[in-house]
Write a protein that binds this DNA or RNA. Sequence first.
DNA 1: TCTGGGGTCCTAGGACCC
DNA 2: TCTGGGGTCCTAGGACCC
Length: 459
Amino acid sequence: MNPGSESDSNASGRRSQSAFALIDGNSFYVSCERVFNPKLEGRPVVVLSNNDGCCVARSEEAKALGVPMAAPYFQIQKDFERAGGIAYSSNYGLYADLSQRMMSVIGQFSDRQEIYSIDESFIEWTGFRRFDLTTLARDLRQRVKRWVGIPVGVGIGSTKTLAKAANRLAKNHPDFKAHGVCNLLDLPESLQDSYLARLAVGDVWGVGARWAQKLQNLGIRSARDLKQVDPGWIRQHFSVVLERTALELRGTPCIEFEEAPPPKQQIISSRSFGQPVTTLEELTQAVSAYTARAAEKLRAQASCTGALTVFLQTNPFNVKEPQYHPSMTLRLASPSADTRILIRAALSGLKHLYKPGYRYQKAGVMLLDFSAATVEQGDLFSAFSDPTTSINPRTDRAQLMATLDQLNQKLGRGTLWIAAEGVKQNDVKQNWQMRRGHLSPAYTSRWDQLPVVRAIEYA
DNA sequence: TCTGGGGTCCTAGGACCC
DNA sequence: TCTGGGGTCCTAGGACCC
C-alpha cells in the first residue's frame, strides 16, 4: 500500500479498512449453567476446574464478592457459600454442546469465522460497508441470547487485537456496557485513543503478567501507551511477538485469521487424581485411560504419532512431602494411532518411572512427532500378514480403532475401553478418577438427564 | 483434606554438516 | 601471528493464550 494513500494516512480511514469482530460469552461456563437453571440468575456462581480445584468462571456477582480468577475453591468456599454463592463442577459436555450452538449462530453473520476457544469467536466484516456494524452486532447479540440463551459481548476493530480490546471495553466500560457492543471503527482516532488509554496494558491481548510489569516499569501503562511506542524499540527490548501486538494496536493486521485450525503438533492428556495415588496398579489404570483419550484425539485429526512422553508428579503444593517429577519419552518402532500400541509403550515407560513410597498427584502422556495417518510407514517386521491367517495388521488395526471411536461417539464415552484402564467395582470410582462433587445434569446430551418442564396450574 | 488442563510461538545455544 | 562461513536440526526455557 502506498504510504500516502487515503486509507493508510487517514486516521479514521474507514474506506477500505479491514473489520473484525470478537464475540465471546459472558462468564461462559456460568452462563451455560444458567441456561437450564434460571434460579442462578442474579446470584453469585462459580464453575470449578477439574477435581473441583480452582474457580475458572465467575458470575458478575461472584466477582463483586471479590472471588479472584483461579482461586482455589477450598480457600474461599466458606465465605462464598455464606454469601449465598453456588459452585458447580465443570460440565464440559454441556459447555461444549452449547458452545457449538453459539458458534453456529454467530457463523450466520459472516462467511469468515474463526473459532478461537470454547467461548470466543472472531468473524470478519471487512467489506460490509453497507451495514451499520454496530447495529449488526446488536442483532447478533440478541439472536445468540434468544436462540442459545447465552449473553455475549461484541468488540469491533480493524485488527484482531483491536477487536479484543473493544470486546474488553464492551464488557467493562460504562459507555458500552449497556448494549454489550463496542465498535472502535465508528469512532475518530482521537476518541479511540482516549478509550485505549482507559485499558490497562496488561489487559491487551498478548501482554501477560510478566511483560505488563516490565512495561509498567518503563512507563508504558495503557493500551494507548503501547500503541504509541516505536514498534522497533519494542522488538529490541521485548520480542517480535510484542512488536506485532503494538502494530496491531496501530491498525496494522499482523495476526492471521484462521478459519480452519491447523492440525495439532502435540496432544496432551493428563489429570490430577481425585486422591493421592501410591500403587503401580492404579497408575497403570490412569496412564492407560489418559493414553486412550490422547489416541482418540490423535485419530480424530487423522494423525499418527512417532513418540510419546509419560510423566508422573507428586503434589508440588505439599512441600513437606518428598517430591518426584519424572518423565520419559519413548519412540515407537513405527508411527501409530493404535490405542493398544500406545498404551503398551506408555506402560513400559511408567514401569521405569514408578518408585514406591511417593504419593502421586498427577500423571499424563504427551504425543509428539506426528505424521499423517494416510502415509503411515510400515514396519518391516510387522507389516506382513501372518500367512496362516488372513489378518492384515495394518488395515485391520485401523478398522478396529475406527469402530471403537464410532461406538464410543454414538453410545457415549466409556462404552468400549481397553481393560488396562481398569474396571469400576460395583460402580465405585477408582481413587485416581477426578472429584466432581457439584456436577449439574448433562441437560442436552443424555436422555436420562433432559430437563423436565412442569405444567404450572394457575388458580 | 482440598491448588486445572490444555495449547502455541520464539529464541538461544549446541551439535553437526559441508 | 594466523585459526571460515553458512546452514540445519534439536532442545530447553520463557513467554503468551483460553
